[in-house]
Design a protein around this nucleic acid. Structure first.
Lengths: 207, 207
DNA sequence: CGGAAACTGAACCGGGCAGTTTATATTCGA
DNA sequence: TCGAATATAAACTGCCCGGTTCAGTTTCCG
């Protein structure tokens, strides 16, 4: 009723906990780190931690949501809508791949999938604060492109889904299966450029 | 030396174990089922199970590899290389999505990702007996299409990577995050058809 | 038939880890 | 300064589950 924006945050060490959780989750993933460790690194007792968060999962959600929004914002920051479509797509694609290939991206994904069944809230939260917003922005941008006569699109949802998928072509699968764990900038560029080309071949105005 | 094709198979109940493991792993995933349960359903003692397989993971690998080869074979069976490229792509795409959306596909993926770090062999095994062979076949088919003058492709690897990725556009992500768990045939068809269109727009001969 | 190999069952080990408790100490605001 | 809110340390509970052991039983084959 009174305290502004304070539903869960009641103690002075809240931020330390969150920071520690962020660091450790990002580095080791959800399963890879124990609550004891998080508390220890936060310089906080386990009991205190559990005074803030009902359980490990909700702690993770908090971290994940914050991180997603940061990443999404960064991705969006580098976009100049005035530039020609292919150029923007290239920038977005590279930014997107950076996230996907990052420690955070991999871990986020891992958790969503491995915990997804028992913990549906997590996947939903992730989608809506990460890929979901990107999709919205992408659709908006594509509409702009159509309005400018650079694109011709009938199904914006499909187009907005296809582009990031094209950017991951091959890379993502090889990453998660461990076939290949490191990718050079050259490799990324090649795939992203290929994605832009394919996308423009389909949706570019007048063949 | 003597017994034909018997490296691991030494007892008469081997098949029962494998069958039970297959059924339960497919239904509940790797983490979702215990060794006790597998043994029980196989009508076999745990000790016997461990006489066949060194550990749970290798049991899973055995199941997974077999299943992958079955799926890959089925996928390949429905292909008539004589038909025009777009038609073949449509068939392959639909078959591919069937696998991806199946209980097996989801679980296979889940395990690869959640266990991948601690158990690299699994991911590799999966890739090589599933997506890897599909990629090979796809490249071969694309070369055929080029030879017939239906396609124009510079980087066959990239093209072979892009197509399945396009087929999953949006669907896969919504699946694993639990945003959407059921897909109608109409939805699938729409995405796959969109994938074929985009693919042909880029790689179809003479624009 | 007789012995070796395969199988059983059920207890047992052990490590990991989330979450709780409790008795005590610190902080901070009124 | 006093008491309520907050924090602490560390032990403790409880669960899960993979893997082992072993003494005794069944199967199979020569």
């Amino acid at each position: 009723m009174n305290s502004p924006a304070a539903v869960i945050r009641k103690g002075r060490k809240f931020d330390q906990v969150l920071a520690s959780a962020r660091a450790l989750f990002m580095q080791h993933g959800f399963e890879g780190i124990g609550v004891d460790e998080i508390a220890r690194r936060a310089g906080v007792s386990k009991a205190t931690l559990y005074a803030y968060f009902p359980d490990k999962r909700h702690l993770f959600i908090e971290v994940a949501r914050a991180e997603c929004m940061i990443q999404a914002a960064q991705l969006e920051a580098g976009i100049d809508l005035e530039k020609p479509v292919p150029e923007v797509l290239g920038i977005v694609g590279r930014g997107f791949m950076e996230i996907v290939l990052s420690e955070f991206g991999r871990n986020m994904f891992r958790v969503c999938i491995s915990e997804g069944e028992r913990f549906p809230e997590l996947g939903r939260q992730f989608y809506e604060s990460g890929p979901g917003v990107m999709r919205e922005r992408m659709m908006h941008f594509l509409e702009l492109g159509v309005a400018r006569g650079e694109l011709e699109i009938d199904d914006f949802g499909l187009a907005a889904d296809q582009f990031p998928e094209l950017c991951k072509a091959g890379v993502f699968l090889r990453l998660v299966t461990g076939i290949q764990t490191e990718f050079t900038q050259g490799e990324i560029d090649h795939v992203v450029d290929g994605a832009v080309e394919t996308f423009m071949a389909r949706f570019g105005a007048h063949g």
